[in-house]
Design a protein around this nucleic acid. Structure first.
Lengths: 116, 116
DNA sequence: CACAAAAGAAACGCTTGCGTAACGATCGGC
DNA sequence: GCCGATCGTTACGCAAGCGTTTCTTTTGTG
């Protein structure tokens, strides 16, 4: 089920959501961090550092650093893979799920309020 | 004309657009910079540093720095207001308009490709 | 004309993210 | 058991953004 948007709607939606996010959220995730977070929560696990790096097209330290930051914020968690102890499996958290749920609501509401 | 989205559609759209943006765009604007850019191009002029700061809920130096960066990228331009020379009027550029046009296309296409 | 107010920029020290390169831990094949 | 390959992290120097404070220019008002 596709979403059909006009150029005005597309940019207007992005505008209002971005604006609201800047005004409200002190955490201020970077674009990369946001992409990683959404990937973790919207794509079926397991997620690894290597996998995320490949998906985003960035180097592994970028992922490590983003996980450090978002881990400190409680948005994600890291667990060593016991079957292959070289791997780290990235886990979702309740707080992270809540964060994205609120963010989704923000998008929906701003979309609803679009009057162009 | 509102845009009605389900939670899956809202986050899915954000996911795919963010992912694509990370992969493709080396400029890597911050959330604040993006909000400023969209404000300049979607809201009727004139735009001033002070006005943008108030709209975004940030301090003036944040706006000055963002304009420095985006000015260097050619996305916006600054012109002294001749009627009150204390003010600076922020101008749109062809390159900035093109940038947002491409970004809008990206959103539209990712929305169209959403199959949940 | 003096002087406070206003707008934007510059200065300051700090934090955070970046890319590259090096590192320790772990695995699998021989 | 060794040894190259793989995985994630750490280290390093650098660039960029942050908040606060200070400065410069310009305005308008007494």
């Amino acid at each position: 089920m596709p979403v059909e948007l006009t150029p005005s709607q597309a940019l207007g939606l992005w505008h209002s959501v971005t604006l609201d996010q800047v005004r409200v959220d002190s955490r201020d995730l970077t674009l990369r961090q946001m992409a990683i977070l959404l990937q973790i929560y919207l794509v079926p696990p397991p997620h690894t550092v290597r996998g995320l790096a490949a998906t985003l097209g960035v180097t592994k330290p970028v992922i490590t650093r983003a996980l450090d930051t978002m881990g400190a914020l409680g948005l994600v968690d890291r667990v060593r893979d016991e079957r292959d102890r070289r791997n780290v499996v990235i886990k979702r958290t309740v707080e992270g799920a809540l964060y994205l749920e609120k963010f989704g609501d923000l998008i929906i509401n701003q979309g609803r309020n679009l009057h162009l």
